[in-house]
Design a protein around this nucleic acid. Structure first.
Lengths: 215, 215
DNA sequence: CAGCATCCGCTTTGATACTG
DNA sequence: CAGTATCAAAGCGGATGCTG
């Protein structure tokens, strides 16, 4: 990107991460840890190969990411956030919070990756009964299953399957998010294509921290 | 900007504010409140006129800003952040924090506006002796004077002049910032073109919250 | 003067194909 | 797997002109 040529901290930041695709590359590395070129490509549907290569070069030069030769049995290059790159997490978290109300619209062509939803769910959900015994919910909403767990009264989310889920939600991502956010009533869940297995009371316990305004 | 077409809160946010210049327009409105087209133009040196008009249209359509007809004696249009736009402040604050270490380099062609520095100073400075009587420092560093004041143990900054400053710093922006951040020793201030009037002990009292790593 | 719209050359991006 | 190469299309920057 061409520099803004301003002596301003915001402009200087955007000189580094303001390019198209750049923050989404940081997102991928923040969510998934070390990634191969191919992993990044899969997590950034639509990016041109030359652009990905160029952005990675620029980010490395700026000290945001580092290249790393994986240990012998793997024999590939891994891209990883540096300490400086990790410090971009607050920016990404604020963008998630700001973007959540926009998740009520899902365009037909929108790509879906479960790992994009994991961070958002952890930021927005809260355990309304922190002293009760922990619960586990499994979501089947994207390309991979997601687990929501309560631990010490706080919510933790991760990709993967649960050993024993207290509830399982299966369906398209948008209604599932709407149900968890309280925008869809549990009674309307089935009408929105959601299959619910388990104790319905869990939905009351795990809910949105602050109900987002209806746009 | 072309949509990323991803069902991801970060991508949805960037679909709205990821365009070139867009976040800097929000910065101007966040820092200065209601602005005329001409004010925005002055605060965004280098932006093409058609781009500013186009971005303003997009931001209005996205509900981030609103147009407002100023009261009769002024007879002009004011652009203002909506409540939704105000919620972008955390994003801008994180970008300021992340970009601060980059302020150690000031390219020769970099434009300087005092109001860009005001927010950064408020975020990074702290009053190390909150119980002592309040102090006022005036900076003559950019196109407008800046006032730094302690109030109830917290730092407040604003554009303007102080009625009675306990100290006044005059000089180029970068060394002044370096002095306040502790990257330049008070003894080296004069060698960096800084003129200091007042009690030098104030520099010990008002300092950087966390010393940024030397790049 | 404030608030744009138009035109044009240049740069960046997107889509695809190809390579060590 | 991890990129380069190529080229058309879109976006941007700078200048200028128009309208209330």
């Amino acid at each position: 990107m061409r520099s803004y040529d301003e002596y301003c901290a915001i402009a200087k930041s955007l000189d580094v991460v303001g390019d198209r695709w750049t923050l989404l590359i940081v997102r991928e590395l923040a969510l998934r840890g070390g990634c191969r070129y191919t992993d990044l490509r899969n997590g950034l549907p639509g990016i041109a190969s030359n652009l990905l290569a160029e952005r990675l070069r620029e980010l490395e030069h700026a000290g945001v990411i580092a290249r790393e030769d994986a240990p012998p049995p793997i024999a590939t290059t891994l891209f990883r956030l540096t300490a400086r790159g990790e410090q971009l997490r607050p920016v990404l978290e604020d963008l998630i919070r700001w973007g959540l109300p926009l998740m009520t619209e899902q365009k037909p062509g929108d790509a879906v990756r479960s790992h994009w939803l994991v961070w958002a769910l952890e930021l927005m959900l809260t355990d309304r009964r922190p002293d009760a015994s922990p619960v586990t919910v499994e979501l089947q909403a994207g390309d991979e299953p997601i687990v929501i767990e309560t631990r010490d009264g706080t919510i933790h989310t991760r990709l993967g399957r649960a050993d024993s889920a207290d509830a399982t939600l299966t369906g398209p991502p948008r209604p599932i998010l709407g149900l968890l956010l309280g925008l869809i009533q549990p009674g309307d869940a089935k009408a929105n294509g959601i299959d619910y297995q388990g104790d319905p009371a869990i939905l009351d316990r795990i809910g949105a921290e602050t109900t987002p305004p209806p746009s």
